[in-house]
Design a protein around this nucleic acid. Structure first.
Lengths: 261, 261
DNA sequence: CGCAGTATTGAAATTTCTCAAGCCGAGTGG
DNA sequence: CCACTCGGCTTGAGAAATTTCAATACTGCG
């Protein structure tokens, strides 16, 4: 319950946020300084703790600084369906800006640190600098693309491919975020939780992992994912990272400038 | 392939579009007239025809005027995974504005009519009237909420509930769009396609439908969905329409006006 | 009338889940 | 240092769910 509040948000947060926005477009100097002007609070979250719950109406958006967060639905029988996993640099709930209530919850899978970006400030930001708004909009769209991929994975892939696909996605995203450590990345889940993400029993998860391991594709244990053969893993997963690649927005700003003249 | 192009886009399209945007916020007179100023082309699509394909980079967004559209992934083996179904008033691919390439395809399930909104115009619109941008952003967020719900449905619900849930969702949305005809709505899919949406075989779909029918909850045949007992259907589906309800945005504009002063 | 696509049904084959038991490694306390 | 516990991982085997295969109706339409 120790929700420590750090009152002097380090420059680190702004740097990260600017970097994130820059991934999706070129920021003007004004854009950048506006982003740096956002007043953020940081907060430490303990392993397993909920950050926002289904049904709530938060007034700030979460920005992940470290650790891994997950979104999940709570089912009538109390069981969970995990929907997505989030790493440093992600904004897992900007949609809360525009949706009335949370349709799902957000929790920390390990000890994590987040920054809170007040909705009011974000709104203001988007109104005055629509370019920034576009960058954030893009983020929510990639989110949707990941959900689509999950639908397909859970609906149409066999167990091994399903697990392999999740591995690929997490590994790929961790690499994009420079979070790899000697070919490995964190994935602080147990097999049961993996099953709750992939719509399969933990036994099936175990057997799928065993196959992946035995075929020398990857290893996963104790919350660490180690890739052994990336190419073959991608192939058995049917993983195509296109859906994770955002438009550079150079294109968009192009269009923008053109249409302004 | 007869892609008829209607060169005098009726006021009907603008009316619909304005109505759509108004669902999510209050438009100023200026906003409204700007929307009405968008130059649209309308197009008739034939049953089964693709409108945009996976891998393409469209330059206009689709607005559904009549008929039903579907988004789907094409799997390596050529099979399909349907991701969502869209009715009159939907904008099934605004995300194409910001994502580099389509990660999925869009097709017509029956004969349909669409309007094409050029990306350039939309961009321009969002830049000058961010309020409109917010309304459209909201739409993509509800999209994501529907995807989340699909993940949970396909991952955690049994066959009967899964089918029932899809029925509930489509019926609910059709009602919102005033598309009901004496308690029934169109759902121009066969059982096989239903299976490709829900991650189950067409046999299982058939048996699930049979149960739903025998229990007097609903009937589905020949592309028509008739609800017999809405309350009980919702209950067996575990359907909670909260995720389909967008923020009225009165709230957002509130925030906006406040933060401007 | 007959065709083509769709729906329905039964039964076998397969996958997946549930249940149950044993294992392993980390942390704890004697 | 060792016994103990706890959570997570692994494995086997029977039960249940699901898919596949195959055959038979149904329906709208030319």
């Amino acid at each position: 319950m120790a929700k420590k509040i750090d009152l002097h948000p380090s420059r680190r947060v702004s740097d990260l946020l600017v970097a994130k926005a820059k991934e999706h477009g070129t920021l003007s100097a004004a854009d950048e300084s506006t982003i740096r002007g956002i007043k953020v609070r940081t907060r430490k979250i303990r392993h397993g703790e909920d950050i926002v719950c289904q049904g709530e109406r938060p007034s700030a958006a979460v920005f992940v600084l470290s650790g891994m967060l997950a979104r999940y639905h709570t089912l009538p029988d109390g069981d969970r369906q995990y929907l997505s996993f989030h790493i440093k640099g992600d904004l897992p709930d900007i949609q809360s800006l525009f949706l009335r209530v949370m349709d799902h919850s957000l929790c920390a899978l390990n000890d994590a640190e987040i920054a809170l970006l007040p909705h009011a400030e974000l709104c203001q930001l988007f109104l005055t600098q629509p370019g920034i708004g576009f960058a954030f909009w893009s983020l929510t769209l990639m989110d949707a693309a990941m959900f689509r991929e999950a639908i397909t994975s859970n609906g149409a892939r066999n167990h091994v491919a399903r697990v392999a696909h999740l591995f690929c996605q997490q590994y790929f995203r961790a690499r994009q975020a420079s979070l790899l450590e000697r070919g490995a990345c964190d994935l602080p889940l147990n097999q049961r939780q993996l099953g709750q993400a992939l719509g399969m029993s933990h036994i099936s998860v175990n057997r799928a992992i065993a196959k992946i391991r035995n075929q020398g594709l990857a290893d996963f244990r104790g919350g660490k994912l180690v890739i052994a053969n990336w190419q073959r893993l991608m192939r058995t997963a049917g993983f195509d990272p296109t859906y994770l690649k955002l438009a550079k927005l150079s294109d968009i700003s192009h269009r923008r400038f053109r249409s302004r003249q």
